[in-house]
Amino acid sequence: MFLGETIGTAVLILLGGGVVAAVVLKQSKAHAAGWVAIAFGWGFAVMTAVYIAAPLSGAHLNPAVTLGIAIKDGAWSDVPVYLAGQFLGAFLGAVLVWIAYYGHFSATLRDEILVTEARQRPAAAVGGPGPVLGVFSTGPQIRNVWQNLATEIIGTFVLVLAVLTQGLNDEGNGLGALGALITAFVVVGIGLSLGGPTGYAINPARDLGPRIAHALLPMPDKGGSDWSYAWIPVVGPLAGGACAAGLYELAFT
């Protein structure tokens, strides 16, 4: 179970973070491919990760999904194991993205320094989002705590409700093969419809694990990891997952 969640979440972040890196980092062949590429890239990342992890753990890959299933089934004993695997996997996946795009991170940060110096403007405030943080974790376009929190709650509510209503695998602990495909398209839909305000974390592990990786990895002039915002993509998705499980219990059982 732990191994399945670790491997699956690492693949999720490797491919999901990888498409963001491909689009935003300088000298990438996919540079400036746009939001649609990112949304579909994350959808395919979910599908691939679920197919890989489902035989081992049921492929939750998301603490909000784990919470929703636990509320639905009343099975809490395995929750810490799932969460540990998800956060470790997310961290490892982010490190793999950094390795794959090592030169592009360097080029992007170097260009950012040159632009900053040419315009004679101060760099990002200490602790605020650095120029490559978006590859690792999410951040809002407009900083409004309640709007940002509400967006994450709503997006995750849709995701977890879709997971619960489409039916779980035969063991009842996660998604089956058809569920992987359906969930992938749900993630694409959420990204296209609700991703604009915050970047749609909809997964606490997906955001916090890579944010920690950003803070620890040796990237000169990488800027801050925006810890003042970091609680929103953790609390919001957990609240959204709990609300989805609550509605499922009221409406579908």
Rank of each mutant, 00 (worst) to 15 (best):
P55F: 04
G174I: 07
T183A: 05
Y248A: 13
D207C: 01
A251Q: 10
A251Y: 06
I71R: 00
I153F: 01
E112M: 06
I69F: 02
A124D: 12
P204F: 15
G241Q: 05
D111V: 01
W227K: 04
P233I: 00
Y229K: 03
G236L: 05
Q141T: 14
G172K: 13
A75N: 13
G240T: 01
V24N: 08
L133Q: 11
Q166L: 14
V65E: 05
L250R: 11
G41H: 11
P218A: 14
E112F: 08
T138N: 07
G93P: 00
F40Y: 15
T165N: 10
Y229F: 12
G240S: 03
G174M: 09
I202P: 00
A215G: 10
A118E: 14
P204K: 11
E112G: 09
A84N: 07
P55G: 04
G41S: 13
V79D: 11
V235D: 00
L208W: 06
T253E: 15
V135R: 09
N173R: 15
L3H: 07
P129A: 15
A124M: 10
Y102A: 09
L109S: 04
L161R: 00
T9F: 12
L61T: 04
G43V: 02
W42L: 04
T183V: 05
E171V: 08
C243M: 15
F87K: 05
A205M: 06
A251F: 14
K29I: 12
G196A: 09
G195K: 08
G43C: 03
Y51D: 06
G223M: 05
A230E: 07
R110M: 06
A84D: 03
L161C: 02
V145Y: 14
V115L: 12
G134D: 04
V46T: 11
G89F: 03
P80L: 06
G74S: 07
Q166N: 12
A54F: 04
T253K: 15
R110H: 11
G130C: 14
N173E: 15
D226R: 04
G191I: 01
M219L: 15
I99A: 10
T156P: 00
E5C: 05
K222A: 10
S225D: 03
V19I: 12
S137W: 00
V132K: 00
M219S: 09
P122F: 09
W231P: 00
N173A: 09
A230V: 02
R110P: 00
V188S: 10
V23Q: 03
G41N: 10
W35V: 10
V126M: 14
E171G: 15
L109K: 01
I153E: 01
S228I: 05
A94T: 03
W98H: 13
D73A: 08
L114A: 10
M219D: 08
Y101N: 00
M219R: 12
